[in-house]
Nucleic acid binder design. Structure first.
Lengths: 351, 351
DNA sequence: CTGTTAGCGCCTTCAA
DNA sequence: TTGAAGGCGCTAACAG
């Protein structure tokens, strides 16, 4: 039993479909109040629900926003999603969600699905990959987006531009100044620590991770410190945990009285920092007594993490909102106005 | 410039639209391989992307799953969302996301929007409200769902049935045994604590919260303990924080040597527990030394929360998957097979 | 201000 | 196996 249609409503009200449409949806001049009321009553009594698919077909505009994330349960992404969702509500649009795990292959697939559904705009969050093995997939992704834009779609990418994507006017980038911010963080930490610096990062070729490494090293260099060792692992809690474990095996707890060489760890994102902290603790190391550690993002989870973690605050929700806004209005200016902020907390307190 | 259509592809390939359709989408008998190849090439060269809206209109099936949550950035909901998303991927469907903040009014609106988009199924997560001021909205919500089901839609509700919803065969409930589990938790805690029990819960009329209170009190009663005082606040971290603050003002830190009266707090969900723990700590109380506390849900965040929190583990992802599955296949049996588990951790260790 | 006529892009009978 | 025709539900031009 299918839902009732506009035609049925019209017939019941004794008017033409066009009139019924004008009363129930259209914004053009309103038909006479007498007849309008009849239509509304007919619609009500039939439980009429307009078919958005059909409307979209006729109007060629769906009111759909496609959101691509790696993992919706990751606090980083869910915060961004909240921002996207907020704008969507304000604009009376709906969010289509796709999770990819982070591979360009899946991202391409998600974009294709959104394109098929004729989403008005697409927001892509999550780091780009510059790995050679992803080069082909990246190109396909870029091509897919290109086609989508050429067909009138709007896309916003969070973080860094997609390799090979054309600079059409439907393509927006919300740039996150990872390098500059990581450099600032390094500068701040350099003032507090003498010990060797270590970076726990994602695999080589993850743009966000690589940028943060680069910025951090640059900051150390400017402070005349030798570059940090870089430990690679998964760009998530699990990876941080493993890296932390490895690190723990070579770090000694401080003996009382000893001056001690206290390592200062920079994890390329907060979830890695949390994972690392967990494994360090499991191995009997205390933060910040035995090791200092800082993260990046300032995800909401940090609010209740002890010891409180130093990090770089990113306005995640705002990033999501901004990205979405840049696609719904045609503000090129809304792109890339993100600012972050170094936040020092207990985890990096000097001893 | 619109995307190219099936007709264009057909013309380019020198075949009829029907044939092109059969080659590119339809599953009926396959046209000759020679002609099929021509069509595929034509599609490729034109960058043809099938219009899912049009397909949906013609087939009256959209492949859309609507998900309603209170807040996508809340770990409880994002975990469920992950489960939903997972099934969606397996089934080659897409997830439409709506966040409501928890009011039945907004939920009704979300359901209406999903119905308009002709989502094949709708999953509603988040506690029901039994408050009298929500009664009207609940009825409207129920009516909306009813109509949706009558039109062939499938709906799954997580937690408890919606007040007033008809028992049609498109209506599934994934029941969470809040009462039984809370009772078990109380039983476990009763064995460890003598001190007064206190429940920090959401406002009266939130079904999930009320059920957990009821179960907990029942457990205490069976252990011949007097009922716990109930403190009401928002059913979120903020609420937990406030409740914790109030509680802290009347709890004394344990003096060394004193036998001390140690309170045992049960927060109706984990985020409340986390909030409460934060304010207790801010007020100089230590867990579990001065106060014991337990939560409910076992959200992922707990993994890195110190002290580790006792709670009731709910298979959140599985709940999301199960709810979704119950709507895509027509298994009534998939409904309501959730089991939880009491997990005792450090936060409730006896002194 | 209302009704009529065409499509929007696709799928699915039906006949060839 | 392939093509032609009709319709999915709605909107947007055009008449009246």
């Amino acid at each position: 039993m299918a839902a009732s249609t506009l035609a049925e409503v019209a017939k019941l009200a004794g008017v033409s479909p066009a009139t019924a449409s004008r009363v129930l949806n259209g914004s053009s001049r309103k038909p006479g109040e007498d007849i309008a009321e009849r239509v509304r009553q007919a619609a009500e009594s039939l439980g009429y629900v307009p078919n958005a698919q059909a409307q979209a077909l006729a109007k060629s505009s769906t009111g759909l926003i496609g959101l691509v994330v790696h993992d919706i349960a990751d606090p980083y992404f869910s915060a961004i999603a909240r921002g996207v969702q907020q704008v969507a509500r304000e604009q009376h649009r709906m969010v289509l969600l796709a999770t990819t795990g982070g591979t360009p292959v899946d991202e391409r697939e998600a974009v294709a699905a959104f394109a098929a559904r004729r989403a008005d705009s697409i927001v892509i969050a999550g780091t780009r990959s510059t790995r050679t093995e992803d080069a082909a997939a990246n190109l396909e992704l870029a091509a897919e987006l290109d086609r989508y834009c050429r067909n009138g779609g709007q896309v916003a990418v969070v973080g860094q531009p997609i390799v090979g994507a054309q600079e059409t006017d439907g393509y927006h980038v919300v740039t996150i100044p990872n390098i500059a911010l990581a450099e600032k963080l390094a500068t701040s930490l350099a003032g507090l620590h003498d010990g060797p610096f270590v970076i726990i990062a994602g695999p080589a070729g993850l743009a966000t991770s690589d940028e943060r490494i680069e910025g951090f090293q640059r900051g150390l260099a400017k402070a005349s410190l030798s570059p940090a060792e870089v430990i690679r692992a998964g760009f998530n809690r699990e990876g941080g945990f493993e890296a932390g474990k490895e690190l723990a095996s070579r770090i000694q707890p401080r003996q009382s009285g000893e001056p001690a060489l206290r390592h200062c760890i920079f994890a390329a994102n907060d979830v890695m920092a949390i994972g690392a902290a967990a494994s360090l603790r499991e191995n009997g190391l205390r933060i910040p007594r035995d090791v200092a550690i800082a993260g990046f993002d300032d995800i909401e989870t940090l609010r209740d993490f002890r010891p409180s973690l130093s990090t770089v605050r990113l306005p995640l929700e705002e990033i999501g909102s901004l990205a979405t806004l840049s696609t719904v209005e045609h503000h090129r200016e809304t792109s890339g106005q993100i600012t972050g902020q170094v936040i020092l907390r207990r985890s990096t307190e000097p001893s």
